[in-house]
Amino acid sequence: MEDSTLALLEQLIARPSVTPQDAGCLDLIGARLAAVGFALERMDSGPDDFRVSNLWAVRRGRGTDARADGAGPAHAPAPVLVFAGHTDVVPTGDLAKWSSDPFVPTVRGDRLYGRGAADMKTSLAAMVVAVEDFVGAHPDHRGSIAFLLTSDEEGPARDGTVVCVERLRARGERLDYCIVGEPTSVERLGDTVKNGRRGSLSGRLRVIGVQGHVAYPHLARNPVHQAAPALAELAVTSWDAGNAYFPPTTFQISNIAAGTGAGNVIPGELVVDFNFRFSTESTPESLRQRVHALLERHGLEYALDWTLSGEPFLTPVGELSAAIGAAIEAETGITTELSTTGGTSDGRFIAKLCPQVVEFGPLNASIHKIDEYVPLDQIAPLTRIYRRTLENLLL
């Protein structure tokens, strides 16, 4: 199992699949899945200059009532377990700073280096090999196993998982459990499973002033001075207290721009970019309303554009978290912690169709960094954890 996962992982890393390029990863994975009885369906989407590769692959097992003509959705009284993930990776950055070519998988010491090693090609390889091993031992397993894979997770995420979910929803496809292969482990493999994620709401605030000479402030209106008290209040506002699963909602300013570059000109406009990472105790609507009320109370002339990147999702303790928790403990001896920290993931889209979604994968210490890596001694245990989870849910 270890050799098989490592070999597939190296093949995946060697494909330079920078968003939205898949670089043949889905063809490689699809061929492996087809060989063990999966039906493959490509759901590619997007314009020609940003074409996204998507794959939906399903293996129907015992207890699945599929239509004989193959048309329409299958109705599965037994569970449908989905492995989800992305083949795309972030750009490498300065190649001169890498110790080895990021698209040549390289072993140094006890680590395998390469772009995507942690995020998330190790998980993809482990999922595929775990399923191959499981199906080989249990060809008549109950329920269904599926893969939902995209090359548009690290990018704008407009033509990837979100498109697939909508197509599956439109035809009545049922999903019961989903494991997203995001790198969630912090100190040791298995110490953290994500059972939810915070929402992400961004704003671009334009505060309108009147440009003028710094020596004649009475003839101008400085938007920086006007906005400063409001921004200070936004920074210290308590938006909610969080709950048992989520930390409190946070507000962060990411960019501020004003001025012409000259030292003797009062700017005519201030532009502020900010972001909320919000818990289920707040909604996009409530946050928008509170921000607008605060800005208006400060008497600002402004325009504010909002972008909702994702709403929060939460999977309470249930069959899926119990199954993967038991698999982790059996393999590593660790009692995993359920967490909702971190950024957004494609789980936010899948959760709209699937009632139980968790994320689990290898160490996340090196994701998106120069010299991204995965510890070699995590590859086989991760594969076995995925296989044990299959056994816990489908036998």
Rank of each mutant, 00 (worst) to 15 (best):
V193G: 09
K194Q: 13
G196N: 14
G196I: 14
R198F: 13
S200D: 13
S202A: 14
G203L: 11
G203D: 09
R206W: 12
V207D: 05
V207Y: 00
G209W: 03
G209P: 06
V210C: 05
Q211T: 10
G212D: 11
H213A: 11
V214L: 11
V214D: 08
A215H: 11
P217S: 06
P217G: 10
P217T: 05
L219A: 14
A220C: 11
N222T: 05
H225V: 15
A228C: 07
A228H: 10
A230T: 00
A230R: 00
V236I: 03
V236G: 00
T237C: 07
N243Y: 09
Y245G: 08
P247N: 07
I253W: 01
G261V: 03
A262P: 10
G268K: 06
V271R: 08
V272K: 00
E281Y: 08
T283I: 03
T283R: 07
R290H: 11
R290E: 13
R290T: 14
H292V: 14
L295C: 04
E296K: 14
R297Y: 04
G299K: 03
G299R: 01
G299F: 04
L300T: 01
E301H: 06
Y302D: 01
A303H: 07
W306S: 02
G310C: 13
E311F: 10
P312T: 10
P312A: 12
P312V: 07
P316V: 13
V317A: 15
G318D: 11
A322S: 15
A322F: 15
